[in-house]
Amino acid sequence: MDRRLNLTGWGFLLPAALLIVIVSFVPMIQAFILSLQTGRGTRLTFADPLWYNYQRLLGDEIFKQTLLNTFIYLIIQVPIMLVLAMILASLLNNPRLKWKGFWRTAIFLPAAVSLVSYSLVFRTMFANDGFVNDAIGIFGVEPVNWLGEPNTARFVLILGLLWRWTGYNMIFFLAGLQNIDSSTIEAARIDGANAWQTFWRVTVPQLRPIIVLTAIMSTNGTLQLFDESWNLTKGGPAYASMTMSHYLYEISFQRNPNFGYGAALSYVILILVAILAFIQLKVGDKRD
């Protein structure tokens, strides 16, 4: 290409690239340096030993609890959500389906609501004297202290996540399905495969790139959950439903801010995101 055009291209992408370097890469390096320091507020000195903050994390019971919680959300919620999103998308992709626009809008709509908003709606519905307890009361079920018990609090949080994100992921699957050659599905049908077999053996393998994309996005999002933990369960009871990012906020910006220790925790999140993304890319790349 002509030199002038090449330079024009660099000029056009410079603002975007510079911004990403300034707000992502530079802070990422600074966070690592910070994670080797100790002290309160702005008076920070290098720790002795340097990895002191990381060592401290290993003995931090609250950190272990929030790590466990985050993984419970990840392992239970993400697979259920992606399967549901795929099923909903393939139902919506059926050319004979009626009221398609209505279903799509209704199912996606939760994704337009802010995380704080829906957290507070769920908090209200699952309050001790709230709607859900009244509803199950009709069937003679005793009221449940939803947000006061560890497992039910986690359950409500997972239910909220499913409500908020299933429709969002469905849109990506729907876009992927529309790009699949429908003749492959017809061929499977002619060969005598039923709808279920066709779905798992023909459609799903072709959706692999979208599955990898949505799985990575969802994993990334789950490891960074904050709004729901803060607003829906307030991390409680005690620390039973608190996420890692919620704990990170507590360490870094509440009471006695400890930026060094917070930065070490943030690096644990970064490394987990990287490892899980790498595994998902490897698994997703495998050819049959």
């Binding site: 802070p27 990422m28 600074q30 966070a31 890692m244």
Partner: peptide, 9 residues
């Protein structure tokens, strides 16, 4: 890069 990892800096 999770936002959490860049937030403090």
């Amino acid at each position: 890069i999770p936002f959490a990892a860049t937030m403090i800096p």
